[in-house]
């Protein structure tokens, strides 16, 4: 029986962990903008400077 109570507490703890993670993420504004990062990741990482002007062909 003690085992079951322990397991329940562990499962609750896991749930609370994810809840806290979500609260933290929402509070730091990670859900404020879901559109821009999706577009940003498609940009080529060319550093500034004339040498890298032409991206390598695909």
């Amino acid at each position: 029986m003690l085992l079951i109570i322990g397991l329940i507490l562990i499962s609750l703890g896991l749930g609370v962990g994810f809840l806290v993670a979500f609260v933290w993420a929402a509070r730091t504004g990670q859900f404020d903008d879901t559109d821009t990062p999706a577009r940003r990741m498609l940009f080529d990482q060319t550093t500034s400077g004339k040498k890298n002007k032409k991206p390598n062909g695909f």
Binding site: D32, D33, T34, D35, T36, R39, R40, L42, F43, S48
Partner: peptide, 27 residues
């Protein structure tokens, strides 16, 4: 559009005074 984001986040290449720029297309 995506070009807008790209350009606005590369402002530092136009003027060195810009340290960081982040665009939000939704808002």
């Amino acid at each position: 559009c995506s070009s807008c984001i790209w350009l606005l986040e590369n402002l530092h290449r136009i003027n060195q005074g810009v340290l960081l720029s982040r665009a939000n297309i939704g808002e």
